[in-house]
């Protein structure tokens, strides 16, 4: 039978990381705590720990990426794993060889972990369903569905600045419709029990029934940012100007671009986040992006520690005596 929660093993431990949805609050906290212990590794003279020595990690990127790919690679290397990067040219993707055939081949080369980015929602789930039992899959972004490590590093960054989650008001601003980052952040923030979670965008960028995920919808930026502790800006892809989603970049920036002036209504100690890469002058003004409340670059360095935490938890699971219990 299909396991209801594919990403946990039979002992409830994290085997894959595919989505934030379905993780318990304690599991998220445990990852953040583990990441805390890895932060110092980056500051040491020898930036390596031997936790994953002898393990092989494969980066399978079907979509272009700079920071996610790089930080995963750095994280794996700091854990002493061997890292293989397979960059699949999206234009020539899997003609002749199916996705699953390719994975079988990599399995035959005794790899231990696949880090997958793919343009289709559900790609990481599909792969996780078909890999050999010793292999773990980390979702590095699938379509519009999820980007769980990004959400975790955002939670890590928020916790470092704000401490407790419960009292927080968080506003996610921009293209929620097409954003896997937003979906994962929403699951993480609701699981962590923040008091007020808002999405702010014109209707064309807000998916139908997003309120079912536990968010409040705002179309007016100033209303949406009022008293916010955390403002998360989402990247606006230039191609959204086509397809009648928005009239122009200028109008978008006018109404939804984050400026110092709009930020005035947020709390004085509000932090500004962005998963990158940023479009200056489209969703965020340079003055804010480079300003004192921006934690955007900190997010990037935290990404390494958080990815080290996830990789070590997933691959470093100690064998548990099962007493003859078979694979469920």
């Amino acid at each position: 039978m299909k396991r209801a929660n594919l990403q946990l093993d039979e002992h409830g431990r994290l085997r894959h990381l595919l989505t934030i949805e379905g993780l318990k609050r304690q599991q998220i906290i445990a990852i953040l705590d583990a990441a805390e212990s890895f932060i110092s590794v980056g500051d040491q003279q020898v930036r390596k720990v031997p936790l994953l020595r002898g393990k092989t990690v494969v980066n399978l990127f079907f979509e272009a990426s700079t920071r996610t790919l790089t930080t995963f690679e750095l994280a794996a290397k700091r854990l002493s794993a061997d890292v293989l990067k397979i960059n699949i040219n999206t234009s020539a993707t899997v003609k002749g060889e199916s996705l699953l055939d390719m994975l079988r081949n990599l399995e035959a080369m005794q790899c231990d972990m696949f880090i997958v980015r793919h343009g289709d929602s559900g790609a990481a789930h599909l792969i996780a369903q078909h890999v050999a039992p010793h292999i773990s899959v980390l979702n590095a972004g699938d379509g519009r569905h999820a980007h769980p490590t990004q959400a975790l590093l955002d939670m890590f960054t928020i916790r470092r600045h704000k401490g407790e989650f419960a009292p927080l008001t968080v506003a996610i601003v921009g293209d929620v419709m097409h954003s896997r980052v937003a979906r994962s952040q929403i699951h993480a923030l609701t699981t962590l029990g923040i008091s007020d979670l808002r999405v702010v965008a014109p209707k064309t960028l807000i998916p139908t029934q997003v309120e079912n995920l536990g968010v409040h919808i705002y179309h007016d930026m100033k209303e949406g940012l009022r008293n916010a502790d955390v403002v998360i800006m989402l990247r606006l892809q230039k191609e959204r100007m086509q397809g009648a989603l928005l009239p122009s970049e200028q109008e978008y920036f006018q109404d939804y671009g984050l400026t110092e002036e709009k930020l005035q209504v947020a709390k004085d100690d509000a932090i500004v986040m962005h998963p990158g890469p940023i479009n200056r002058g489209v969703e965020i003004d340079s003055e804010v992006a480079d300003g004192p409340r921006s934690v955007i670059l900190e997010q990037v360095s935290n990404g390494i520690a958080v990815r080290m935490a996830v990789m070590s938890m997933v691959l470093g699971r100690a064998p548990i005596e099962t007493g003859g219990e078979g694979e469920a």
Partner: peptide, 15 residues
């Protein structure tokens, strides 16, 4: 279907 499930799974919807 464009609705609760498509928004959760990030699947492009058909209303």
């Amino acid at each position: 279907h464009e609705g609760a499930v498509s928004v959760r799974l990030g699947l492009p919807g058909i209303p």
